[in-house]
């Protein structure tokens, strides 16, 4: 070989080694860098999710606070005023001799009684007192009794085990049941709704209806119809639980909500 010519074998050997080393380094870099970037992205998403959860929790808490205030105002102020008005009417009735006046006073008293009942009902809907006094099981039993009609039966079942729920989890769960049952009655035309709660060992809530069912994926995509489902999912997320929804057209819908013990 002429000495002035480059050693092609050496150039080839060195060049190939360097290229392969660079290729290997790039592949390793991609694997590790991508892993790290993905971890950062997931942490950021987790933080954002947590922020959203807290925001929702704060919104719902303030909503509940406002409901509580309204319920108390209705019960203590409006209710009390109406009761006082009723007493006054009774007094007026005892004074008058005129039949027409008495009849008119009776009618007015009846209207006030109805208004008192309505105020009580609204107040109870806004804040179920049985939930605070006796807990979720009793509140749900009362809710089922109240909402059941001869045409639609809402049945409550539980395994009589001690619930592991915290006090602050009971109200969101109660609202969740309210929302799901209302959906079943309002949109699914269900004739029967069964609510069952179990503690095995995690708390689980299953609500099954025999309504017309719906296409879950299509409903989720529909911006007008999917809000209800979105709210249900958000409420469950706020409780750090999981919701499983199955619906068969013409057969009904089942929601299964599981809340972990340490949530």
């Amino acid at each position: 070989m002429n000495n002035s010519e480059p050693n092609f074998l050496l150039v080839f050997g060195l060049g190939t080694s360097i290229m392969l080393f660079m290729a290997g380094s790039i592949v390793f870099f991609i694997v590790f860098y991508q892993k790290r970037m993905l971890q950062n992205k997931m942490e950021k998403q987790k933080m954002e999710g947590e922020y959203q959860r807290k925001l929702l929790q704060a919104t719902l808490e303030s909503q509940e606070k406002e409901r509580k205030r309204l319920a108390s105002e209705l019960h203590d102020s409006v209710g009390a005023m109406l009761s006082a008005t009723k007493l006054n009417l009774n007094f007026l009735k005892s004074l008058g001799d005129d039949t027409e006046t008495k009849q008119s006073l009776d009618e007015t008293k009846g209207m006030i009684d109805e208004t008192i009942d309505t105020v009580r009902r609204i107040s109870k809907d806004l804040l179920p007192s049985s939930l605070e006094k006796f807990g979720l099981v009793e509140a749900l039993k009362e809710f089922c009794d109240k909402i059941s009609t001869p045409k639609t039966e809402v049945i409550f079942q539980n395994d009589d085990k001690q619930l592991s729920l915290k006090k602050e989890q009971e109200l969101p769960l109660y609202r969740l049941v309210q929302e799901i049952v209302n959906n079943a009655l309002k949109h699914a035309d269900a004739k029967s709704v069964i609510i069952s709660i179990n503690q095995d060992p995690r708390f689980s809530l299953v609500i099954t209806d025999n309504g017309k069912g719906f296409d879950v994926q299509a409903t989720k995509k529909d911006i007008n119809k999917g809000v209800g489902l979105y709210n249900i999912e958000n409420r469950v997320n706020m409780l750090r639980g999981q919701v499983e929804l199955t619906s068969v057209l013409g057969q009904g819908t089942t929601y299964k909500v599981v809340i972990p013990a340490d949530a």
Binding site: M1, E5, F8, L9, V11, F12, G15, T16, M19, L20, M22, A23, G24, I26, V27
Partner: peptide, 20 residues
């Protein structure tokens, strides 16, 4: 990637390697 980076110098210098 590995195949084409590894064979780059082989194909680049193919003519010279055959000759020399």
């Amino acid at each position: 990637f590995v195949y084409f980076t590894g064979t780059f110098f082989l194909f680049l210098l193919r003519g010279y390697l055959i000759n020399h």
